[in-house]
Structure formats: structure tokens, C-alpha cells
């Protein structure tokens, strides 16, 4: 039922407490959201979950395994994929190549078969390409398969990040502000795409600034503020939580 569980997750950068004893459980096949003001520790949480940074304390359990000490590639291989808030594509590779690299752990062959190009190699490569194309289609990028990723327009780059994460064939996909910098139209499109991703049977964790958007799409929400989980629960519960209202209203007035 729960695919991922974090217990007392803590991350300090020197004196700065980016995360302080955050615990939560993630339900299989549902869309979860993490919200909170700037600098609340949302991205840091993702970094801990994916092995990009090592938590100072606490543990993360995923499919019966403690993963907080694993390397990012090991976490990816186990089935957690992510996108990045500040886009991190492979800009001088083609769009297709971007989703092909992502299948790295799902196709195994060595240097020798790459050089000899036997029939098993060829069929594996063909499969990688076809799968890649499917993910591009899903994100509406199939027409740009041969373009350089760095040359894509901004919105498409964000969608390519999602396609690339999907191509790693994850159980859980973490999306760090996938609509950042998008106009309302594009944002709605991405929200539809996220529902599609859920439809593939994936568990989604979404970081989003916009409360309204989050309320509509998520089944469960975690609110972070200054590294502390101040509320969690269904959208209803979170919406009415006085602490959340204060954190958000407090933030709204500073703008």
C-alpha cells in the first residue's frame, strides 16, 4: 500500500536546517504534493529521496529497502525518477537521445556487443528507440525527436524532463515544479499530463507553489515551512489548517 516512507528526515547545511525531522508515507498509485514557501526545503527533500544529497539524519524506505545512503543511479535503478526545478537536460544530445539515455539501467549490454553489433544488440537498440518514441509521444514531443534538446522551447524542455524521467521506468516519479515559468495554458496542459502519468500506474510526488493547482490534483499534501512539516493530509484538511493559512498568508503579504 505504501511504496515509500521517510522517517525523521533531516538535512543541515552547516547551521542551516533545510529539513528537520520530516516524516511521511507515500501511497501507491496516487498523486502527492509537497508545497511550501520559497526555501522551505522542498527541493532538498527531493534531493534526499533521490540520493543527490545525503540526509544528516533519518531514513528512507522504498520497496522494503533503506535507500538514504544509496547513490542517485542506484535509486534510479530501484525505480525512483525525478525532474529538476532548474532544467537539467542533456542540451547537446537530441531529444530522442535524452530519453534513450534514461533507459540505461533497463537495457544491459557491454562494450563488446556494442562494437560487434550482433542481432541481440540491434533488437535491444530498436526497442530502446521505440520505447523512447512512446514517451515522447506521451509528452507531445514526437515531432522534435531529432532536435537538440537545448534548442527546444522552454515549455517543451520541461515536458522532455518528464518524458526522460518516465523513460527510466520508475515506480515513483518526483516532479520539482514542472510548471515553473509556464503560462496558464501550458500549466493546465502539464496538469493533464501528470494525470496521464498517474494513469500509467505511476506514483507521483509533485512540488508546486500554486495552492489552487495542487488542491485540484492531489490526493495527499505535505506542507513544509522552514524545513519542518507543518501539516499533511487530504487537500481539505490542509486547506483548513491554521498553520498552513498562516504560513501562506504570511508569505502572501510579503509579496
Amino acid at each position: 500500500m505504501f511504496v515509500l516512507e521517510a522517517r525523521e528526515l533531516t538535512k543541515h547545511f552547516g547551521g542551516l536546517k533545510a529539513l528537520e525531522a520530516v516524516s511521511f508515507k507515500v501511497k501507491e498509485g496516487a498523486i502527492h504534493s509537497i508545497i511550501g514557501p520559497n526555501g522551505a526545503g522542498k527541493t532538498t527533500l527531493f534531493n534526499c529521496l533521490t540520493g543527490v544529497t545525503r540526509p544528516t539524519r533519518g531514513s528512507i524506505h522504498f520497496s522494503g529497502q533503506e535507500i538514504s545512503r544509496l547513490q542517485p543511479h542506484e535509486v534510479a535503478e530501484l525505480g525512483i525518477a525525478r525532474t529538476f526545478q532548474n532544467i537539467r537536460l542533456f542540451p547537446e544530445m537530441t531529444v530522442m537521445e535524452n530519453v534513450m539515455v534514461a533507459q540505461h539501467t533497463r537495457t544491459k549490454y557491454g562494450l563488446l556487443s556494442a562494437v560487434l553489433r550482433g542481432s541481440s544488440f540491434m533488437s535491444k537498440e530498436r526497442a530502446v528507440r521505440e520505447k523512447g518514441f512512446e514517451y515522447l509521444e506521451l509528452m507531445g514531443l514526437e515531432d522534435h525527436a531529432e532536435a537538440l534538446a537545448g534548442n527546444l522551447p522552454y515549455g517543451s524542455q520541461r515536458r522532455l524532463e518528464i518524458a526522460r524521467a518516465l523513460a527510466t521506468e520508475p515506480k515513483i516519479i518526483l516532479l520539482d515544479e514542472p510548471t515553473a515559468g509556464m503560462n496558464p495554458m501550458e500549466t493546465l496542459e502539464v496538469m493533464d499530463l501528470i494525470r496521464k502519468v498517474k494513469g500509467l500506474g505511476k506514483t507521483v510526488i509533485l512540488i508546486e507553489h500554486d495552492m489552487k493547482l495542487v488542491m485540484g490534483i492531489s490526493e495527499w499534501i505535505l506542507v513544509l515551512d522552514h524545513g519542518v512539516g507543518i501539516a499533511e493530509g487530504s487537500p481539505e484538511e490542509v486547506r483548513n489548517d491554521p498553520l498552513v493559512i498562516e504560513a501562506y498568508l504570511g508569505r502572501e503579504t510579503t509579496h
Binding site: 542533456f90 544530445m93 539501467t105 527510466t168
Partner: peptide
């Protein structure tokens, strides 16, 4: 192109 992204898609850097 991007080491962190590479490791995050499963490449043992």
C-alpha cells in the same frame, strides 16, 4: 552534458 542528471537517470557516473 549534466552529471547530476546523468546519475539521476541511472548512469553510474
Amino acid at each position: 552534458e549534466n552529471e547530476i542528471a546523468a546519475s539521476s537517470v541511472g548512469v553510474n557516473v
